[in-house]
Simulated scan of single mutants.
Amino acid sequence: MSSPRYIISRVADPIFAVFIGLSAAAMRINREEKEKGRSTQQTLETLRRRLGFPKNS
Rank of each mutant, 00 (worst) to 15 (best):
M1A: 11
M1H: 10
S2I: 00
S3G: 07
S3E: 08
S3W: 03
P4D: 01
P4R: 01
R5E: 02
R5C: 03
Y6N: 01
Y6T: 02
I7A: 10
I7H: 13
I8Y: 08
I8V: 10
S9F: 00
S9Y: 01
V11R: 13
V11G: 05
V11E: 07
V11P: 00
A12F: 04
D13S: 10
D13W: 04
D13L: 09
P14T: 01
P14E: 00
P14V: 00
I15W: 08
I15S: 13
I15K: 15
F16A: 02
F16I: 01
F16P: 00
A17N: 11
A17K: 12
V18K: 08
V18I: 15
V18E: 08
F19V: 02
F19P: 00
F19N: 05
F19R: 06
I20P: 03
I20Q: 08
I20T: 11
I20E: 09
G21E: 07
G21S: 14
L22W: 05
S23Y: 06
S23A: 15
S23L: 13
A24L: 15
A24I: 04
A24D: 02
A24R: 09
A24F: 08
A24E: 04
A24N: 06
A25H: 00
A25E: 00
A26T: 06
A26W: 04
A26F: 02
A26Q: 06
M27Q: 15
M27K: 14
M27I: 13
M27Y: 14
R28E: 10
R28V: 13
R28I: 14
I29Q: 11
I29G: 04
I29Y: 13
I29E: 07
I29P: 02
N30T: 15
N30V: 10
N30Q: 13
R31H: 09
R31D: 05
E32A: 10
E32L: 15
E32G: 09
E32V: 06
E33I: 01
E33V: 03
E33N: 14
E33L: 07
K34C: 11
K34S: 14
E35P: 02
E35H: 14
E35D: 15
E35V: 06
E35Y: 14
E35S: 15
K36A: 05
G37T: 03
G37Y: 03
G37I: 02
R38G: 02
R38M: 02
S39F: 03
S39C: 04
T40N: 12
T40D: 08
T40C: 11
T40G: 13
Q41S: 07
Q41P: 00
Q42M: 09
Q42S: 12
Q42G: 14
T43W: 05
T43K: 03
T43E: 02
L44I: 11
E45R: 12
E45A: 08
E45N: 13
T46L: 13
T46F: 08
T46Q: 15
T46H: 14
L47Y: 08
R48D: 10
R48T: 05
R49K: 14
R49P: 03
R50C: 09
R50M: 11
R50T: 05
L51Y: 06
G52W: 03
F53L: 15
F53N: 11
K55R: 15
K55L: 06
K55F: 07
N56Y: 09
N56G: 10
S57N: 10
S57H: 11
S57V: 06
S57F: 03
